[in-house]
Design a protein around this nucleic acid. Structure first.
Lengths: 154, 154
DNA sequence: TGTCAATCCATAACATGTTAATCATTGTGC
DNA sequence: GCACAATGATTAACATGTTATGGATTGACA
């Protein structure tokens, strides 16, 4: 190996890689469900967020669903064509768009939601509910601690 | 909202979403470095893994770097063209490929590795070394617990 | 009120994610 | 030795990630 232990970390102890692998392992459980309904995980995220908070604009939705604006533009277009969400210009501001689920979109939530909850319960049962809770808290704490992109201490 | 608390989880308490957001926050710190060297994070992962374990075949590299085989095929082709890695057919088995870094690839590790370690140290300082360690352990435990794709308990 | 920067969104271009299908090579059973 | 399944890698096709750029609307301000 080119490097030694004092410089580059082993991939095994790399935080980004561990987070990626953990996420993939979890998502593997949900993928069959989403596939059954012809949804990508990103599309499902958009729909869920819009269910939680209808009327969001692209910027807010992008932040809430963790999807970059260019991807979101493409996605909303296709989801609109599928009749799952509606997009209209804001009355006051012609630049801004207001997004919300259609009846069909809300119906999808009602169908997939419970099935998704079953999978979540399975994961919790396997990992342990308390450990899942603790992990969620730790992750949110990590996010808080890293907030502010370039505020290094020096 | 269409759902209630007993069915679909709030995006805030969704494990996949939390893992995604945490990962993005961490990666934001590394992105400028990689960009400076014209590498994507995936390319960097491939290079690191090959540094750790030279001679891997596509399947093993795919698993170790968490990159699906089709993506990896494209990437190795481009990385080979850039002179960073070398690929040759296995003597014994004409299907299999053996991948390893070139001198130029190893040189890249020597340059980026220390800079990457600095960023890791910054992240640790911000989050707390013990908490990072605990989080890594928890993530690996999660991965272990979820191993085996469809082994539900019923 | 006309100019100009700022804001919000969309598009472009290329890399990767994802599933399905294909191709080449190897192993198996007969 | 030959058909045939199995294996490892690639290709195809479409969706998303990512940065840079463009277009339209708005807001500030002289």
């Amino acid at each position: 190996m080119t490097n030694n232990a004092r410089t580059l970390r082993t991939t095994d102890r790399s935080l980004p890689i561990a987070l990626l692998r953990a996420r993939e392992k979890v998502m593997d459980r949900y993928r069959p469900l989403l596939q059954k309904h012809d949804l990508t995980e990103q599309q499902w995220r958009v729909i869920r967020v819009l269910d939680e908070t209808p009327g969001l604009d692209m910027g807010a939705l992008s932040a809430a669903a963790n999807i970059l604006a260019p991807s979101l533009s493409r996605m909303t277009k296709s989801l609109e064509e599928r009749g799952l969400l509606a997009m209209r210009r804001t009355p006051g501001d012609g630049r801004r768009a207001s997004l919300s689920l259609t009846v069909k979109g809300k119906a999808l939530i009602k169908i997939i939601g419970p099935e998704s909850a079953v999978i979540s319960a399975e994961v919790e049962a396997r990992v342990g509910p308390d450990r899942v809770r603790a992990l969620l808290d730790d992750l949110h704490a990590l996010i808080r601690d890293l907030d502010g992109l370039s505020e290094t201490s020096d």
